[in-house]
Design a binder for these strands. Structure first.
Lengths: 152, 152
DNA sequence: CTAATCCTTGACATTGACGTCAAGGGCAAG
DNA sequence: CTTGCCCTTGACGTCAATGTCAAGGATTAG
């Protein structure tokens, strides 16, 4: 399997594959003339790498995580790293959930327009739950037409 | 409230606040000498903006979402945008969950080392669920020492 | 052999939310 | 008025994964 095959099978660009190799995430053998050769298993590996990239792990972290995959075991510090990343992902999911809820509140307000939701009358309904001392707001509402943007 | 106060209260840099303004996400009044002045409510707004940034929304999208907050209502297309972003966030959460599960599998293997999990013997336990035709793998195991990286 | 297609390395471009530095003005305390 | 801190605009730097272009070698079909 040459690089183009792997790229197609794993759904990534050849550029990415060379980058992964450059980062020490993916290994390849070379033909006598220098062309990269991969085993079938590389496809799975690339998919795993992609999964981590999608999850926001930087290449340096993936680089330290993958050896655990290869060896099937992890040192104490590697295990700590795994768990730290797990925690980071969990936190990221919480952040996403919070933003999703904020959007949900907006969607709800947009679908049920009523005076009760007017931000000028009460605590803005989209606000987080820290509402404690912001009652003195002099909402001057300087919204002009700045927000109009035109693109495809 | 001048820009430094808002920055401190909202936990962001003054640079970020100017950037938000530049992107049309945050408005400010100016003193006669050009210094920015904010209402208390700006703190909440900045936190909301941050929440969206954390969720991965690009500034252009936030720029089109925030008017819904201000007006308390959304046009049809704005509502579609809100729902599209909600879907994107949901998808991102799914990706994160998948990566978290992959990490969990690694952690589990790392904590329960046994031959059954050895990737050389069977389907790598961390692999996704597409295991179908990779049985012919001639696992040459060319793992050398490429993955060793030294930092901090 | 030759053309077509794939591969190689190298290097520069991109996108986005900032950091950071520069040069200068505002403002309160002494 | 001077010191010191905060503010202004402008512009360039950063990081990370990837796109893209360039110049040339490798492979393969004819």
């Amino acid at each position: 399997m040459r690089i183009g095959d792997i790229a197609q099978r794993a759904g990534v660009s050849t550029r990415s594959l060379r980058y992964y190799e450059e980062q020490g995430l993916l290994s390849s053998e070379r033909t006598s003339t220098g062309q990269r050769t991969y085993a079938e298993s590389a496809v799975e590996r690339v998919r795993l790498i992609q999964q981590f990239f999608t999850a926001g792990l930087p290449s340096r972290t993936i680089q330290r995580v993958l050896p655990c995959v290869d060896s099937g075991e992890a040192s104490a510090e590697a295990l700590a790293l795994l768990e730290a990343e797990r925690a980071r992902i969990t936190a990221a999911m919480d952040d996403l959930a919070a933003a999703r809820d904020a959007l949900d509140r907006m969607i709800h307000i947009a679908q049920n327009p009523s005076a009760e939701h007017c931000p000028a009358l009460r605590e803005p309904a989209w606000a987080p739950f820290e509402g404690a001392g912001s009652s003195a707001g002099a909402q001057t509402g300087a919204q002009t037409g700045v927000l109009t943007g035109a693109q495809t």
